[in-house]
Design a protein around this nucleic acid. Structure first.
Lengths: 240, 240
DNA sequence: CGTTGTCGTCGTACAATGTACGGGCACTCT
DNA sequence: AGAGTGCCCGTACATTGTACGACGACAACG
C-alpha cells in the first residue's frame, strides 16, 4: 500500500536505490531488476526513480558501485608488507564478486569509477605504499592484480552458474557433444589427457577444477605466480 | 524483398546466423542485436530464427563461439617453445576480443564451451605440449593465462568504450568529481601521486595508461610476470 | 493570508522486444 | 494420389524502458 499521491516521503537516496536493486538481483537474479520492480520494492512509483537516476544504465552503475563498496578491507588489516596487503585486497575482491555473481552480466556499464571505486583505488595504493618503486610501477602492479582477480573470478562464477542451472539434461548433452567431438580425432592433445574412458576423464577433470577447495588453491597459486614474477622483474631491472 | 511465403531457400545455418549477428553487433552495437534485426538482415521472417536457436540466449552463445573461432592461431606459428606459443595464443585472444568489444556485454552466456571453444582449448594444450609437467599443471597454466588475458582485455575495452562515448561533458563532470573527491583529503595515497595540480596529474595518468603503445607494453609485461612466476614455482617444486 | 514557484511524485501512453501458437507451403516417401 | 515431414513466418501478447505532463506539498514573499 502506498501513501496518498503527491505525498512527501522521506526522500529516496541514490545509495538506497542501489542497495535495494542489489538485493533484488541477489535474491531473484539480474533479470528481475527492472525499473518497475525496484520502484515497487521501494514503495515508490516507477517514474519516481527517474528523479534519482538518468536511466536504467545509471541504476546499473549504482549497483556496481554498491558492490565496489563491499570489497574494501578495514585499514587495520593492512600491515607494512605489500605482498600480504595486495593478497588481502585481492581476496576481498574475489569474495565480493562471488557474493554478487550477476555483476558480470552488468558489464558494459562502467564499474569502478564511482566513489567506492575510488576508495578501492586508494586502498590498493595504500596496500603497496611500502614498495619502493615508481608510481607507474605501483599502478601497473595493482592494475595487474585487479585484472587477474577479475578474470579468474569471472570464469569461476560463470562455471558455477552453469553448474547451478542444474539442468542435468544440458549437462548430459554437453557431455555427449564433448565425447563425440573428442572421438573425431581432431583434438589429439586434449584426447591424450583422457586415456581411454573419455566420460570418466572429463568428469574427473570437471570435479578437480570446480570444487571450492581447488578453486581457492588455484587462485592463490596464480596470485603468487603473478607477484613472484612481478617482483623478480623489478629486481632484475634495478640491478641493471 | 523477400521471396514467396513458404518458399524453400538455401537453408540458414547456425554458423551463418551467428556470423550475421556478429556483424550487426560490430557495426551497430550490441543492443542492435534483436531477433527481428538479425532475421531481417538474413532476409528471413523473425520466427524462422527459432528453428535454429532455442531462444535469444542461444543466439548469443552462438555469437560467442563465432568469436572463439577468431582467436585460433595457425598451427605453423606454434613452435616447440611453450612460452612463445602461449604468448602467441594470448595475443590472438586479446586481438579477437578487442575486435568485438561487445563480447563483454554478452557475459552471462557461456562462452568457450562451443566447438570453437574446444578448438581453442586444444590449441592451448598443443601450445604447452613441450612443457614437461603434469596434466594438472598444464591445465592450471593455460587457465591462468586465459584468465589474465580476459581480465586485462575487459578493462581495456571498457576503458575504450568509456572514452569513445566522446561525451566531453561526461568526461568533464567525471574529472570535476575526481578533483573534488581528491580535495577532501580522504585519499592520501592517491593524492600523493598528484603533487599540486590534480587535473593535470589525472590527465597525464589517463594518457599514460590508455594509449595503445602503453597498453601493449603493460599487457606483455603482465604476461611475462605471470609466466616467469609460474616457471619459477615449477622449478622450486621440482627441486624439493 | 494569498500568490507564486519549485521540487518530488507518479499515472498514462507508446514503441520495442522476446517468444508462444498455429497454420501454410514445398518436398519426400509410400 | 495421399500422408507425412520439415521449414517458414504472420499474428498476438506480455513485458520492458522511458517521454510527457499533471498534481500536490512546501517555502518564500507580498
Amino acid at each position: 500500500m502506498r501513501e496518498e499521491p503527491g505525498a512527501r516521503r522521506a526522500g529516496l537516496s541514490r545509495e538506497q536505490i542501489g542497495a535495494r536493486a542489489v538485493e533484488i538481483a541477489d535474491a531473484e537474479g539480474f533479470d528481475a531488476v527492472s525499473m518497475r520492480h525496484v520502484a515497487r520494492e521501494l514503495d515508490a512509483g516507477t517514474m519516481t526513480l527517474y528523479h534519482y537516476v538518468r536511466n536504467k544504465d545509471e541504476l546499473l552503475t549504482l549497483m556496481g558501485d554498491t558492490i565496489m563498496g563491499e570489497l574494501l578491507v578495514s585499514d587495520e588489516e593492512l600491515s607494512g608488507e605489500w605482498r600480504q596487503n595486495v593478497a588481502k585486497v585481492a581476496r576481498a575482491t574475489r569474495r565480493a564478486f562471488k557474493r554478487h555473481p550477476w555483476i558480470f552480466e552488468a558489464m558494459g556499464q562502467p564499474v569502478g569509477s564511482g566513489p567506492n571505486g575510488l576508495r578501492h583505488f586508494e586502498q590498493s595504493m595504500a596496500a603497496v605504499r611500502a614498495l619502493r618503486v615508481s608510481p607507474r610501477d605501483r599502478l601497473e602492479l595493482i592494475g595487474l592484480v585487479d585484472d587477474y582477480v577479475f578474470g579468474f573470478t569471472l570464469r569461476e562464477v560463470l562455471q558455477e552458474m552453469y553448474e547451478a542451472e542444474g539442468d542435468p539434461d544440458m549437462t548430459e548433452s554437453g557431455l555427449a557433444f564433448f565425447e563425440s567431438e573428442l572421438g573425431s580425432g581432431e583434438y589429439p592433445h586434449v584426447s591424450k589427457m583422457f586415456r581411454g574412458d573419455i566420460r570418466a576423464g572429463v568428469e574427473r577433470l570437471m570435479e578437480e577444477f570446480s570444487g571450492e577447495r581447488s578453486n581457492n588453491r588455484r587462485f592463490e597459486r596464480g596470485l603468487k605466480a603473478l607477484l613472484d614474477g612481478f617482483e623478480a622483474n623489478l629486481k632484475k631491472r634495478k640491478r641493471s
